[in-house]
Amino acid sequence: MEIGQDQYPHYESVIAAARKAGPVAVALAHPCDAYALEAALDAARLGLIEPILVGPGERIRSAAEAARLDIAALPLVDTEHSHASAARAVQLVREGKAAALMKGSLHTDELMAAVVAADTGLRTARRLSHCFVMEVPGRSAPLIITDAAINIAPTLNEKADIVQNAIDLAHVLEFGEVRVAILAAVETVSAKMPSTIDAAALCKMADRGQITGAVLDGPLAMDNAIDPGAAAIKHLVSDVAGRANVLVAPDLEAGNMLAKSLTFMAGAAAAGIVLGARVPLILTSRADSVAARLASCAVAVLVARRKLDGARILGG
């Protein structure tokens, strides 16, 4: 199953690397509709994941039958309802039976509640955050945008974790030099705009070794973060300005609007993943293209493999 090398060359590379690494077991929480089942089956057929269906067995089988999907070969763990599905999927991870989680047809907050539960969840010392790995037409490399789905109005310390999660993901995807732009509406620090103060503080945290693995700059407006001409007009001289490959939004609303604008107005594809837990979480949307769904699974496989064995995957 090819997703279109001409249209999605970066995703093709990520998927190829994940296939080479080998599939990982994925606990699919509450896949009670055709969309969730199709997403899992497509990824399984491509050799990316080994899905474990977790949810009400009768509902899952009925949904598969109605959509003419063959799930006979997939293991199914029966649960009573969506909350139980989320809890059992998390438990499978804790038992070592799954190396990643995937959202089915339940609400994101239901799955996240099970993930962050104090005694039974999958939390680590790191704040959970969401990353979009964007395939943007005309760009020579993929672009990471964070956080567009989890942290509504993150504090400075939470932003530090959000940045570090994105940097770690960029290294798994072997971006080479990771160049992080801390976005704001302007490129100057202003007491009237708290996002610019946070941006400056994050850059200083990187200078002091509190954030590692990348070059940071900010505050940067969107244009002078990604466009060399715009950066030159503003006389911005840095390794990041005009060349950023990781964009950190000031809050969820800005990040979500940025990612969706690229998707629906610029023809980009967005592969989504949640980081910071013991295992990666695959979050897909009904509006996602097949390419984005498969790339989400592939990114999760690479992250899971890195956690499992620390192997260098991309680039042989």
Rank of each mutant, 00 (worst) to 15 (best):
I3H: 00
G4Y: 10
H10D: 03
H10L: 12
S13Q: 15
A16D: 12
A17N: 05
A21H: 02
G22T: 03
G22M: 08
A27W: 07
A27V: 15
H30M: 07
D33G: 10
L37R: 01
L41I: 15
L46M: 15
G47C: 10
G47V: 14
I49N: 03
E50S: 15
L53D: 00
V54A: 03
G55Y: 07
P56A: 02
E58T: 06
R59V: 03
R59S: 05
R59C: 00
I60A: 00
A67C: 10
A72K: 14
A73H: 14
L74P: 00
L74G: 00
L76W: 04
D78E: 10
H81M: 08
S82Q: 14
A84C: 08
A87F: 09
A87E: 07
R88S: 11
A89G: 10
Q91N: 12
G96T: 14
K97W: 08
K97P: 09
K97E: 12
K103E: 01
G104P: 00
T108P: 00
M112C: 06
V116A: 11
V116E: 07
A117C: 09
T120E: 09
R123C: 14
A125D: 15
R126S: 13
S129N: 08
S129I: 15
S129L: 09
V133Y: 06
E135Q: 13
V136G: 01
P137Q: 02
G138I: 10
R139G: 10
I145T: 05
D147Y: 13
D147K: 13
A148Q: 01
A148D: 01
A148W: 00
N151R: 11
T155Y: 07
T155D: 09
L156P: 14
L156E: 09
L156M: 13
E158V: 10
A160V: 10
N165P: 03
N165Y: 13
A166I: 10
I167R: 04
L173Y: 02
E177W: 04
V186L: 12
T188K: 06
P194S: 05
P194H: 08
P194G: 04
T196E: 02
T196K: 07
T196N: 03
T196D: 02
T196H: 01
A199S: 13
A200I: 11
A200C: 11
A201V: 11
A206Q: 06
D207M: 15
I211L: 09
T212I: 05
G218Q: 03
D223A: 13
D223I: 13
A230E: 01
A232Q: 15
I233R: 12
K234G: 02
L236P: 00
S238T: 11
A241T: 11
V246M: 09
V248D: 07
E253Y: 09
L258S: 09
L262M: 11
A268C: 12
A269I: 12
A271L: 09
A271M: 08
L275N: 02
L275V: 08
G276H: 12
R278P: 03
L281F: 12
L281E: 04
I282F: 06
I282V: 15
L283G: 00
T284R: 05
A287H: 11
A287Q: 11
A291I: 12
A292M: 06
A292Y: 08
A295Q: 02
A295N: 05
V299M: 01
L302E: 04
L302Q: 03
V303N: 02
A304C: 05
R306T: 15
A311V: 10
A311Y: 06
I313G: 00
